[in-house]
């Protein structure tokens, strides 16, 4: 699989996703970059913006197992990881491990902020270690393993926001907004007339190809001045106290370079450009910085603060 071929296949992939998810090209690109980086993505958006549809579409096209976890206040860790059940099928009672929904390739955790912190830790442990420990046994999660967690920025009563340390474990935070007017017309045309289940999508990548793409992504070379630029950008989030109270950690530098590599390979390039770093800076950094009081007073958002740092 050479880079030119990868670019063509990704163009086909975007077109295929576009048959189900109208618009949201930036979100689609970032979610795909998250898969290539072997990371996890946190999506924040209002209800009804095709978050679940996007993940299901991806799972279909990439031929990966998909599962969904709905975040509720009564969600237990065992509901996520799985538990031991009594199995009498062999004539005698014995404990058998029943894997939870986390044992999939693509896991959608809807409204993660509604689940309890205990559930958060069970989820985050699986995300970080790619394994689940139940009792005395450890179970490895199958690769590729991708978690897309969503949250609703409204109706925050009774929710448990992820702490900064927990949010830091997500590669990206993607803000999904309302579609454009023309896109919404197309959405109405498509989904008011037929059922979304009727749309048959082609399988374009296999599991092995996804794993190979993940490996190739890490192999994309980066020039020294690009690395320096990325680290300087992350470092500026710590130094600019006018805008940012708490800056990003070195994990952000690693993830920024990785995300830039993914974007490069998706665009058929064998090198990382400055544009890749600038574009990926927003999803990588926006959940890793805490704005200063002065910035909040001036109604400056995280994205605006990052844009100001990039321009400097």
């Amino acid at each position: 699989m050479n880079i030119e071929e990868i670019q063509k296949r990704f163009k086909t992939l975007y077109a295929e996703i576009g048959r189900s998810v109208i618009g949201q090209e930036e979100v689609v690109e970032q979610v795909l970059a998250g898969i290539l980086c072997n990371g996890h993505v946190y999506v924040e958006g209002y209800p009804g913006l095709a978050k679940t549809l996007l993940v299901k579409t991806l799972a279909n096209i990439l031929d990966l197992r998909f599962s969904r976890i709905q975040g509720t206040p009564d969600l237990l860790p065992s509901d996520i990881t799985g538990t031991y059940i009594i199995d009498e099928s062999k004539g005698k009672k014995e404990f058998k491990f029943q894997p939870g929904p986390i044992f999939s390739n693509i896991v959608l955790v809807d409204e993660i902020n509604r689940a309890t912190p205990k559930s958060h830790s069970a989820m985050l442990e699986a995300m970080q270690e790619r394994q689940v420990t139940v009792g005395n046994s450890t179970y490895k999660l199958e690769e590729p393993f991708f978690v897309l967690a969503t949250s609703n920025p409204i109706e925050l009563e009774g929710t448990f926001n992820l702490s900064e340390a927990q949010v830091d474990r997500f590669l990206f935070k993607i803000n999904i907004g309302y579609p454009k007017f023309d896109d919404e017309i197309k959405i109405v045309d498509m989904y008011a007339d037929k059922d979304p289940g009727e749309i048959k999508l082609r399988k374009l990548f296999s599991k092995d190809e996804i794993l190979k793409l993940q490996m190739l992504t890490r192999q994309v070379p980066v020039a020294n001045d690009m690395k320096k630029y990325a680290v300087e950008l992350v470092d500026s989030t710590r130094k600019n106290k006018t805008l940012i109270e708490y800056g990003a950690s070195p994990r952000a530098s690693i993830n920024l370079i990785l995300a830039a590599k993914a974007r490069a390979i998706m665009n058929g390039r064998k090198y990382v450009s400055k544009e890749d770093i600038n574009v990926m800076a927003h999803p990588v950094l926006r959940h890793r910085i805490i704005l200063s009081f002065e910035a909040e007073r001036q109604n400056i958002s995280e994205d605006e603060a990052i844009t100001k740092l990039i321009k400097k």
Partner: peptide, 24 residues
């Protein structure tokens, strides 16, 4: 553009992507 510096900085690395970049 940007390829020359990348190839120069990764001269002693070898993998399919870097080798392809060097050829280009």
């Amino acid at each position: 553009n940007e390829q020359l510096r990348t190839a120069a900085d990764n001269l002693y690395k070898s993998n399919p992507v870097v080798d392809s970049l060097k050829e280009d």
